[in-house]
């Protein structure tokens, strides 16, 4: 992964910029790979169970559950294949403390969606932008405040004033 050639980049997709890649992107171990396989299998099993409960029907009159049952079954099989290959798999990244900012980001968005219907989008949007700028992005206080306020004003003018979108808004 530390070799910045196209093939290596392909492992994590085109979005990973080439450059020095310290240990945070280290390969996941077999435990992670098995866990991924287990999640896939479980998802397939759940889909299969739900689909059979809907009713599969018969070939001349397929029921609502027929197609999802096929897909659920396929996922179970694929999950087993993934588990069998877990040792030889090297395309996953290790999960660890580097994920903390991601959790913080998700939390900020969860707060946004939770309160937007109650107090409108302006205040949560400004707060979200500020948190991302100041704490996730390490921008200066001045830039953080200015950009988050300016952004909310711009969004308001664009979506509410110009496009008349019905997004909940306070002003």
């Amino acid at each position: 992964m530390s070799v910045p050639n196209p093939v290596a980049d392909a492992e994590t997709g085109p979005e990973t910029a080439s450059g020095p890649e310290p240990e945070a992107d280290a390969k996941a171990g077999i435990v992670t790979n098995l866990a991924v396989a287990a999640v896939v299998t479980a998802l397939g099993a759940a889909a299969l169970a739900g689909a059979l409960a809907l009713g599969a029907g018969r070939p001349a009159q397929p029921g609502p559950g027929a197609w999802p049952a096929i897909l659920g079954g396929a996922l179970v099989l694929l999950g087993i294949v993934l588990a069998l290959r877990a040792r030889a798999t090297a395309d996953a990244e290790r999960f660890g403390r580097t994920a903390l900012p991601v959790l913080a980001a998700l939390a900020s968005m969860a707060v946004f969606v939770a309160v937007v219907g109650v107090i409108g989008f302006e205040i949560p949007a400004a707060l979200l932008a500020f948190v991302w700028l100041r704490f996730l992005g390490r921008e200066s206080w001045l830039v953080s405040v200015a950009v988050s306020l300016g952004l909310v004003v711009a969004l308001y003018l664009l979506f509410v004033a110009a496009l008349d979108v019905t997004i909940p808004h306070m002003f």
Partner: peptide, 15 residues
């Protein structure tokens, strides 16, 4: 200022 003006001139929220 523009936005405040808009808000004051009855461009109220939809909450």
């Amino acid at each position: 200022a523009t936005v405040l003006a808009l808000a004051l001139t009855g461009c109220g929220g939809n909450l």
